[in-house]
Nucleic acid binder design. Structure first.
Length: 292
DNA sequence: GGTAGACCTGGACGC
DNA sequence: GCGTCCAGGTCTACC
């Protein structure tokens, strides 16, 4: 079945789809016309694949299954969240267009960051990016999904991302052994347990009115989420007050602003401080000079 | 508040 | 083939 969604005035679907590495991780995929494809498990338990295409200035969403009214509402709401359709970038663009290194992103109407349907899923993905190479992150994520996620009925080789309930049933040694996630296994297991027990309601953080600093504290209360992971997750929540400083950030900031001299995380942070509540976004979409 | 060492995996490298 | 080193963030203990 198919339905349409209205887009905001400044919106570029391929720019959102390619905003970061999530699109390389299943069950995300990019369509041939640079739209979004994803396999989702709806609250009713129905598993389907949907695609989002840009058509005549709007979005066309097509699903591999017939949907009830409730299911279509859920899918519509989820797509809006995943593509960050609600956020207004007018203020940011007016500042960014005065910075030569941000002109390209303004012209591309970039700035929206691709999200998973749930914050739980984004936290798990972020945990899998820490202290490892991207290649290994992709492998861990693939194992997690193919082993524990629900299969797509029309193609059982493809799977949805596992729910907290499904991951809570997998013990730590099994996660270590089957997904090769090492010391991250207890973090994933504990997070799933906390969400299932109701001790941690991650999804309410998506619409929380807490100040960003408080939201950061909440996120850093999750085992395995440190400064980098929290800043990354805040970006996904539409809060850009923190720069996710990782080894890549140290490298590009050194190259761009310090003539290749070694820099500290503090120096990275001070580089973008003047951008205030937009600094994470500025860092993310900065037109970095090629590193030597 | 700052720092050192441990935590894991897998790739690169030397022998 | 085996052993060693290294990259990648976070946690914990200690100062």
């Amino acid at each position: 079945m198919t339905f349409s969604l209205k887009t905001p005035t400044s919106f570029n679907l391929p720019a959102v789809v390619r905003s970061h590495g999530w699109i390389q991780m299943p069950p995300f995929a990019e369509t041939t016309d640079h739209g979004l494809a994803y396999i989702i498990r709806l609250n009713t338990g129905k598993v389907l694949r949907f695609e989002v295409h840009a058509v005549d200035g709007n979005l066309r969403v097509s699903a591999t299954a017939l949907l009830s009214e409730v299911e279509q509402d859920e899918l519509s709401h989820t797509v809006r969240w995943m593509l960050d359709l609600e956020q207004d970038f007018t203020e940011f663009y007016s500042r960014a267009c005065q910075e030569p290194k941000l002109i390209k992103m303004v012209e591309r109407q970039a700035g929206r960051v691709l999200r998973s349907p749930t914050l739980f899923e984004d936290v798990i993905r972020t945990l899998l990016t820490t202290n490892t190479l991207w290649k290994h992150t992709l492998r861990m994520c693939r194992e997690l999904i193919t082993r524990y996620g629900d299969p797509l009925p029309c193609d059982i080789e493809l799977h949805a991302f596992p729910t907290p309930e499904q991951l809570a049933q997998v013990d730590e040694p099994t996660l270590r052994e089957q997904c090769r996630m090492g010391y991250r296994a207890p973090y994933v297991n504990e997070l799933a347990q906390r969400v299932v027990s109701g001790e941690l309601d991650l999804e309410t953080l998506k619409t929380s009115s807490l100040p960003t600093i408080e939201l950061r504290k909440e996120l850093m209360g999750i085992k395995g989420v440190g400064g980098y992971a929290a800043a990354n997750l805040l970006m996904l929540l539409g809060r850009y007050d923190y720069v996710p400083v990782d080894s890549w950030a140290l490298k590009v900031v050194s190259n761009e602003f310090y003539g290749g001299e070694k820099v500290s995380p503090k120096q990275v942070l001070s580089t973008f401080e003047r951008w205030g509540k937009w600094q994470g976004l500025v860092y993310w979409f900065w037109d970095w000079s090629p590193t030597v």
